[in-house]
Write a protein that binds this DNA or RNA. Structure first.
Length: 554
RNA sequence: UGGGGUGUAGCCAAGUGGUAAGGCACGGGUCUUUGACUCCCGCAUUCGCAGGUUCAAGUCCUGCCACCCCAGCCA
């Protein structure tokens, strides 16, 4: 929970006081996704605000599919949305709704408005309506706004009956053609659309617009606080107009907050879809995507995502949060929870020349030094091991203190070895590193207590298993790929994915299950791919690297 | 040139007339059988700018500037 309350909660505190709008009431919010795509980390912010506010005040939060436009929405997204919300740990109880289930009631309220002289049927074409909208200096014109109530009533009923073609007529709210707020210039509240609706089928050929439908949905469900993003601020007068002019007892209050921006990625459904359709990523759940299913596959945890949003806070300032902060939140969680394992991504042979060729030992290693309850495991050890190629340099650069001729390092939990040299192929590539071990240093403790500066990870060449490692990096090379005057596709990071075949991982990883997470010692946090990793062909995704303060100096 | 919003460090963000919290990033050190983690230190004489009120202003007043959203029969 945040240290200090953000502005929305301060508003609610006031309203809950005696005499306040919500005195004695239960705080009731809603999360209203449109089922036309997958949820991403930006939606997660809204999710945390909607569900989090309800939780904070001991209230309720409904889950509602905002499906008022048949041309965009599809049932296929509904289950995925529910799954993502559950994954994040939120519970809507039995309060799962569809806006489309309220169509009949909405129709009734539209009739009420017409009867009150507050709505009328308009026969302008979309083009005409656009032309007559006016501008900042000129009021709009609407030739049908004074047609008799009876005529609008008749026409609207015939609209519903399907007597008119798509686009021929609309129902408009009769508000203010001269308003500086264009949303109030007699906005369309119903349009004709013959496309079948994903749940209502062909029952309806007229559909309510968001500005009319949303306040009704909220009022019908008894929502006290309708929390949404900043771009709806100018729609609030219309929201209030609707709840104040129809016969509903509940008058919800809309409060707007800034949506989330993160560096080096994009967060619009259109752009994300385009990344998929253009083949830059493999799908909505590609681990490089900022979608919840993508982050999940990448190895992100619900706790990390929730911490990210809680610490970012809630305000009305358009923000662009550093991607590094998301990574920090993940590392913080995984450092405490992920079991350690040894994996060599870029293997090179380490031969211990004074170790008997037929000997094998087992060493005990802690699973997580941050959490002793995770216990220990044993790893096997023999004369030939695999180590990370970058842990050896024949000619060390300044401040390099791993393996180089003459230097000692500790093999994690095993022995201290002294490097004696290396073998190279005709092209000059290192094919094996040679060393000798200190027989008195079993477990990694030197008998004489001398300090060993470096400890490196390793795997036993006799028992290790192969794995495919997918190294992910930022999707875009610039912090703001979606700046107005540039094309975000120009900034795609060509190295956002590096696939490494033939990595060597310790034997204990052989029975890893999909979605299992680990810290590969000294390398980073990895997650078994939830689609492609199977026994016999392990696939690990790098969720995030470990911080690395090693800076070679020259 | 209409309406609605927002400006506090590289990035988030507290602050509600009493002398600029915290986190990330960054730099330095400590610790370490992970160059991780931990711990410690440093990091805004100043709050978009300019005036004004006040003993006292990031907070109040006036003016200006910058940026974001709105003219879908999208949400």
């Amino acid at each position: 929970m945040a240290e200090s309350k953000h502005f929305i909660h301060e508003i609610i505190d006031e309203e809950l006081k005696e005499g306040g709008r919500c005195y004695g009431k239960t705080v009731h919010t809603r999360f209203p996704p449109e089922p036309n795509g997958y949820l991403h980390i930006g939606h997660a912010k809204a999710l945390e605000i909607d569900f989090g506010t309800a939780e904070l005040y001991g209230g309720l939060c409904n889950l509602r599919m905002d499906d008022t436009n048949p041309t965009k929405e599809d049932e296929e997204f509904v289950e995925a949305i529910k799954e993502d919300i559950k994954w994040l740990g939120h519970d809507w109880g039995d309060r799962f709704y569809y806006a489309s289930d309220y169509f009949e009631q909405m129709y009734g309220y539209a009739i009420e408005l017409i009867e009150k002289g507050l709505a009328y049927v308009c026969e302008l074409t979309p083009e005409q309506m656009k032309e007559m909208r006016g501008d900042t200096q000129t009021p709009a014109q609407s030739p049908y706004r004074d047609r008799p109530i009876e005529e609008s009533l008749d026409l609207f009923k015939r609209m519903r009956a399907g007597e008119f073609e798509d686009g021929k007529m609309t129902l408009r709210a009769r508000i203010d053609l001269a308003s500086g707020n264009f949303n109030m210039r007699d906005p369309v509240i119903y349009r004709i659309n013959r496309l079948p609706h994903h749940r209502q089928g062909t029952k309806w050929v007229i559909y309510p617009m968001y500005d009319f439908a949303h306040p009704i949905e909220d009022a019908l469900e008894g929502i006290t606080h309708s929390l949404c993003s900043l771009e709806f601020e100018a729609h609030r007068p219309l929201y209030d107009w609707v709840v104040n002019n129809i016969s509903v007892e509940c008058k919800p209050r809309q409060i707007e907050f800034a949506r989330l921006g993160i560096t080096n990625t994009v967060l619009s459904k259109r752009k994300l879809r385009n990344l998929i359709e253009s083949g830059y990523v493999t799908g909505w759940d590609d681990p490089r995507m900022p979608t919840l299913c993508g982050l999940r596959r990448r190895g992100y945890t619900p706790a990390a995502i929730r911490a990210f949003h809680e610490r970012n806070g809630v305000s009305k300032v358009n923000s662009l949060v550093d991607f590094a902060f998301l990574e920090y939140c993940l590392r913080e969680d995984l450092n405490k929870t992920a079991k350690r394992a040894m994996a060599v991504i870029h293997p090179v042979k380490l031969i211990i020349d004074n170790y008997p060729a037929d000997m094998t030992e087992e060493f005990t290693v802690e699973n997580n030094p941050e959490n002793p309850d995770d216990g220990v495991r044993t790893v096997s050890f023999s004369r030939e091991l695999w180590i990370e190629a970058e842990d050896f340099m024949e000619v060390p650069e300044k401040k390099y203190f791993r393996l180089f001729p003459g230097n000692e390092v500790r093999l994690k939990s095993a022995y201290i070895v002294k490097c004696t040299g290396c073998d190279r192929d005709p092209d000059g590539n290192v094919t094996a590193v040679h060393c000798e071990y200190d027989t008195e240093s079993r477990g990694g403790n030197p008998a004489d207590g001398r300090k060993i500066k470096s400890t490196i990870h390793w795997v036993d060449s006799r028992t290790c298993v192969d794995a495919e490692i997918r190294l992910y990096d930022k999707l875009f090379t610039t912090e703001q790929p979606d700046l107005a005057d540039c094309n975000y596709l120009d900034f795609i990071n060509p190295d956002s994915l590096t696939v490494v075949e033939g990595a060597k991982v310790e034997a204990s990883l052989a029975d890893t299950k999909p979605a299992d997470r680990f810290q590969f010692l000294r390398v980073g946090y990895f997650c078994a791919d939830n689609k492609d990793s199977v026994p016999g062909h392990l696939v690990f995704n790098r969720a995030v690297s470990l911080k690395d303060s090693y800076r070679p100096e020259q």
